[in-house]
Design a protein around this nucleic acid. Structure first.
Lengths: 226, 226
DNA sequence: TAGTACATAACAAGCGTTGGGTATGTACGC
DNA sequence: GCGTACATACCCAACGCTTGTTATGTACTA
């Protein structure tokens, strides 16, 4: 019986692993990878290293699981923009939503972004982790390329580039914006991030439609007005 | 008297510090921040930790100096594109050159990029390092904003955005491209990086000139052809 | 009674840092 | 020119501490 024990149901193995991973996230957001130690994670949980080793054979395994879970969480849970755009969104609205969901527009997603940026160092030094990351980004690009392709067919995006190039370029743009927003949050507040992304997408519009004025195409605009 | 001593002139203090920093870079590119230990750096130099502590009071001081020097080196030494554009280049050519010089187009600059990306983790966890980085990126943005402003006056860039927004967006784009190129070098070879950047800049062109076809404006094109 | 779920303690290895020792200069009085 | 005096540059050994990992003990559950 622990005084301040907020432990979940005893014996709930998978829930415990997830809880441990959440502690890993907290440590990573606060101290970065250099500060990620088993004792720090255990302290965050109010437990000891013995608990950790009971659920994970090694620190590396713990880390990989935490990153995987973060990826899943990021892909499945919040996604306010993708949700708002509708589950069956296609073309430009879907692409816009996917990009918006990458940006650190809320404190929670900023924490997630912070972890990803932190993990790049460890990943670049560890081929296995680097492979995980490369696969993740490739998957995201493929998804966005499909949206871009649809958008091209709908006349929403310029057709003088391949969907793959459009997706790669768009992902570069938001990834870089994430980095800048993390280092200079005051200079890149959420509104400005949104505005910069919107301007970027506007430049990708089909030049044939450009004469209409760029917000007037109606069906391509998402519900967000702000 | 050391058997294989390739030590520089004895007593050349600053040269030795620079040499130590170069060893830091090598360790960083090969093992990342997690592998950056004084013993590893010393080993890379063929020296001992005693040498390091003779020139630097602490590991942190050593790291900050190495990053500063890398920044200087990157800003002052190679710059093939800025050179090619001419020392008095202005407007779009200058902006293009500045952006090209950030991309990891050669193995050497890829190593440099690798170090920067790695340093983001440590920097985000250390306010002082974060401040250094933020200042660096802000300076680069200011420089590029000046180029963008000139480009606008020359009719090379669209005028419906502020130079600051143009610079921030452009820096985001290249930073993100750097990250993607590091994780998936096969998918983002130098030619593709160049092409993506060129396409990005083309979209930023003044719409008034767009009807001419986008490579034909003559004076804005750098010497680079492919 | 068995087995799971932990805490606790100890381990060797590696860390940044410190201090002592030893060459290799350079400066200077004679 | 030479010997002493001092500073620089560096190696070497060791410090205390933290790390990931392992082994052992103990409580709870079924």
């Amino acid at each position: 019986m622990y005084a301040v024990a907020m432990t979940p149901a005893r014996g709930d193995h998978e829930a415990r692993r997830a809880e441990v991973s959440a502690a890993v996230w907290r440590v990573l957001t606060e101290r970065g990878f250099a500060g990620l130690t088993l004792r720090a994670v255990a302290g965050e949980l109010g437990a000891t290293t013995g608990l950790l080793t009971h659920y994970f054979p090694s620190k590396r395994a713990l880390l990989r699981y935490a990153l995987d879970l973060l990826d899943e969480a990021h892909a499945a849970r919040p996604r306010p923009h993708t949700e708002a755009a509708g589950p069956d969104a296609e073309g430009l609205p879907a692409l816009r939503a996917a990009l918006l969901d990458i940006l650190p527009l809320t404190p929670e997603s900023a924490a997630g972004s912070r972890i990803w940026v932190s993990s790049w160092d460890a990943a670049l030094a560890d081929p296995e982790l680097a492979g995980d990351h490369a696969a993740r980004y490739r998957r995201a690009r493929t998804r966005m390329a499909a949206f871009a392709s649809a958008a091209q067919h709908r006349g929403e995006l310029r057709t003088d580039r391949s969907p793959e190039d459009l997706a790669g370029a768009a992902q570069s743009f938001v990834l870089g914006l994430v980095v800048q927003a993390l280092f200079a949050p005051a200079e890149f507040p959420p509104e400005r991030q949104r505005a910069l992304l919107e301007a970027y997408l506007a430049d990708l519009a089909d030049p044939a439609e450009a004469t209409l004025g760029r917000s007037g195409s109606g069906d391509s605009a998402s519900g967000q007005v702000h």
